[in-house]
Amino acid sequence: MAMIDIEDRPSSLWRDAWRRLRRNRLAVAGLVIIAALVVVAVFGPWLSPYDFLSQNLDLRNQPPSAQHWLGTDDLGRDVMSRLIYGARTAFMVAVGVTVVAVLIGVVLGSIAGFYGGWFDRFVMWFTDITMSVPQLLLVVVINASLKQPISLWMEARYMETLNPIWRNSQIIDFVLVFGAMALITWPPYARLVRAQVLSVRRRPYVTAARAMGLTNRLILTRYVLPNAMGPLIVAVSAGLGTAMVLESAFSFLGVGVTPPTPSWGNMISDGLRVWTNYPHLLAAPAAVLAVVTVAFNFLGDGLNDALNPKGQK
């Protein structure tokens, strides 16, 4: 009788992928940088040397020094503290937007790919339309048309209840920026998932699952989706980086996070106006954004190689 030895510890596909990922130095470097970002984002308030809002008008536009490692900006705020708080903004936006976009993409894409028919045509038609609208334009339109009414509505709630939560401008920022960015970033996820589902649902084990009388919902969630996840994970890793860049771009243009909440994008925007005199105000946030974006791309590439071993030599 044919038998093979089974390892003491059964190795799963994911464990194999993790082993391959660990061998990729760039991917590990990316992973370390991202882990550092997460730590800074989560523990920011305890790590930052100053409050990111406190101004010191006697110490404006200071170059880096022992007191202010990365200097101060035009209102005398500590740049390092603002960068750390900006990491929080970037991280929250990236994760929030990506989670919402991936959820929409997975649900719509998998149902479209698995069942086909009119729903599939409708979803694909909708992604085509969304993807054909210039992203920046869409976000500007959403911001311009919704920010005012929502602010007014929240101010009215505040007058009624005197609950300070209604005066928190960060909430508007996040709802609007998250919503607008999720709206423009979900279509590629939906298309990717749909394409994967289309190919996986033809595999023999899906037919075998049908022949066992399993329900469509069970086949989709247990047989099709888990086997369609590889490329999605790669896309998510790259998408997190893209979402950060996008948030910076919108903040840079003034349609993202509203000052004084620090975002790398609005710091770059502020720094750009004075960079000939105070280059560190531009260099610090720009360098951080670049490093983090590159880290996400390294990790994405590494994951791609780790999850698709057939792609290599």
Binding site: L13, R203, P204, T207, A208, M212, R222, Y223, N227
Partner: peptide, 20 residues
């Protein structure tokens, strides 16, 4: 399917879900 008529398929290498 399954409860009254059972099936066995041609290719055992690809007829099992690799993640379960």
């Amino acid at each position: 399917r399954g409860s009254e008529i059972g099936f066995i398929f041609q290719d055992p290498m690809t007829s099992l879900n690799p993640v379960i």
